[in-house]
Write a protein that binds this DNA or RNA. Structure first.
Length: 351
DNA sequence: TATACGTGGTG
DNA sequence: TCACCAAGTAT
C-alpha cells in the first residue's frame, strides 16, 4: 500500500532535524516560515539561534522588531520575519497564545499561506490537511503522471486534491513530511534515484520511464540590472552614516549606506549621489575614491554597486531613519548581504 | 494571474 | 559561468 510504503520509509530514513524534536506548534511554525524557498542546511543554524533567542510565542511577541530582523539577517525574504512576528502577536493577543488548529483561522495569520497552514495543522496537530510545496508537486507529478505546469498558480489545487484523496488519516503528519522528504532525498529535480525509491512500484512515471520529463515547469524570465552608487560616509569623529530603508518593498526596514539608483551614465554618478544625499539627508558631503565594485544578484534583479568612501562636512540629524554610528554600534543593525559586502570592502581597504 | 521578494548552493 | 534552484506568500 502506497501510504504504508511511504510512511515506513520516512520512519526509517528521515533526517534528524532540530524542528523534529517535538511538535510544539510555535516551533513547527517558525521552521516552516524559515524553510520557505530556503535550503534545510541554511535554515538549521538560524532556527537554533532564533528559538534560543525567542523560545516561545510570548518571547517573540514582546521582542523588538529590530532584534527579530537581526536574527533573520542573511536569511533573505525579510518580510517573512516581520509577518511572523505580527502573526505571533495576533496569536498571543487574540488566541490566548494558542496557535489555532482551524484551517480558516490559521490561514488568516500574516505569512501563513496554503502550504504553511497545511504543514502546521498536519505536523503539529495531526490534522489531515494537504501541505503542497515544490517537492510535493514534483513527487506527485511523477507518481500520478500529472502534466500540468507546476509554475502556474492554478496547478496547486490539483495537487491539493490529489493529497486529499491520498493522505493517511492515521498519520497525516508523517504522510506530508514523507512526501517532502522523498522529494528532497530521492525524487530530486534532476536524476531522481528511482532504484532507491520506496514507492517506485506505485509510480506511473517510473513505469513508463518519464520521470526525467516531469514535472513540467515553465522557465522564468531573465531579470533586470540596476546600477547603484553608494558611499560609506564618515564625519570628523569617524562615525558612519546609515539609513533605514522604507517599511515596504525590497529589504524593507533594513539598514543601508546612502545610495542612489544611477539614472544617467557612469560619469556623473558621484555628483548625482552627492546631490541626492544633500536633498534626502540635508548633508553636505565630499565623495572620495572608490572602495569597491559589488555585484549582488537577487531573485528578480541584479544590483551593480559602485561603492565610494566619503566625508561628511555638515549634516542635520532629524530623521529616525538616519543614524551616525561607530563601527562597533553598526554591528547591532541589520544590513542586507549586499551592504555587508560593501562594509567588507571598505574595512579591507581601511588598514 | 503575474510579479516582487533574498540568499547561497550546484551541475 | 550561470540558470536554476530550496519546505511560498502578498499583492
Amino acid at each position: 500500500m502506497f501510504q504504508q510504503d511511504l510512511i515506513g520509509w520516512f520512519e526509517a530514513e528521515q533526517r534528524d532535524l532540530p524542528w523534529r524534536k517535538d511538535k510544539d506548534p510555535y516551533k513547527v511554525w517558525v521552521s516552516e516560515i524559515m524553510l520557505q524557498q530556503t535550503r534545510v542546511d541554511t535554515v538549521i543554524p538560524y532556527f537554533l539561534r532564533f528559538i534560543e533567542q525567542f523560545p516561545t510565542i510570548q518571547a517573540l511577541s514582546t521582542a523588538e522588531e529590530d532584534r527579530v530582523l537581526k536574527a533573520w539577517e542573511g536569511l533573505g525574504y525579510y518580510s517573512r520575519a516581520r509577518n511572523l512576528q505580527s502573526a505571533v502577536k495576533e496569536v498571543h493577543e487574540n488566541y490566548g497564545g494558542i496557535v489555532p488548529d482551524d484551517p480558516k483561522e490559521i490561514s488568516t495569520l500574516k505569512g501563513v499561506g496554503p502550504y504553511t497552514a497545511g504543514a502546521i495543522l498536519s505536523i503539529a496537530y495531526g490534522i489531515p490537511e494537504p501541505a503542497v510545496d515544490g517537492n510535493v508537486m514534483r513527487v506527485l507529478s511523477r507518481i500520478l503522471l500529472i502534466w500540468d505546469d507546476i509554475a502556474k498558480a492554478s496547478s496547486r489545487k490539483i495537487f491539493e486534491e490529489a493529497v486529499r484523496r491520498l493522505i493517511s488519516h492515521e498519520n497525516p503528519s508523517y504522510f506530508n513530511q514523507a512526501l517532502m522528504e522523498l522529494g528532497a532525498l530521492i525524487c530530486t529535480p534532476t536524476s531522481p534515484s528511482c532504484l532507491l525509491c520506496p514507492v517506485r512500484e506505485h509510480c506511473q512515471a517510473f513505469q513508463e520511464g518519464s520521470q526525467n520529463e516531469l514535472p513540467i515547469k515553465t522557465k522564468n524570465k531573465k531579470h533586470r540590472h540596476v546600477q547603484i552608487a553608494a558611499a560609506v560616509l564618515r564625519n570628523d569623529e569617524g562615525k558612519i552614516l546609515i539609513h533605514k530603508r522604507p517599511e515596504k518593498g525590497l529589504l524593507a526596514n533594513l539598514w543601508e549606506f546612502p545610495n542612489i539608483e544611477v539614472a544617467l551614465p557612469f560619469v556623473n554618478e558621484k555628483d548625482q549621489l552627492k546631490e541626492a544625499v544633500k536633498d534626502l539627508y540635508k548633508a553636505d558631503i565630499q565623495i572620495g575614491g572608490m572602495i569597491g565594485q559589488i555585484e549582488h544578484v537577487f531573485s528578480h534583479l541584479t544590483w551593480n554597486i559602485n561603492a565610494y568612501e566619503g566625508k561628511i562636512q555638515s549634516i542635520e540629524m532629524e530623521s529616525k531613519e538616519l543614524k551616525l554610528v561607530t563601527i562597533e554600534e553598526m554591528k547591532e543593525f541589520t544590513f542586507s548581504v549586499s551592504h555587508q559586502k560593501m562594509m567588507k570592502q571598505y574595512f579591507e581597504g581601511d588598514e
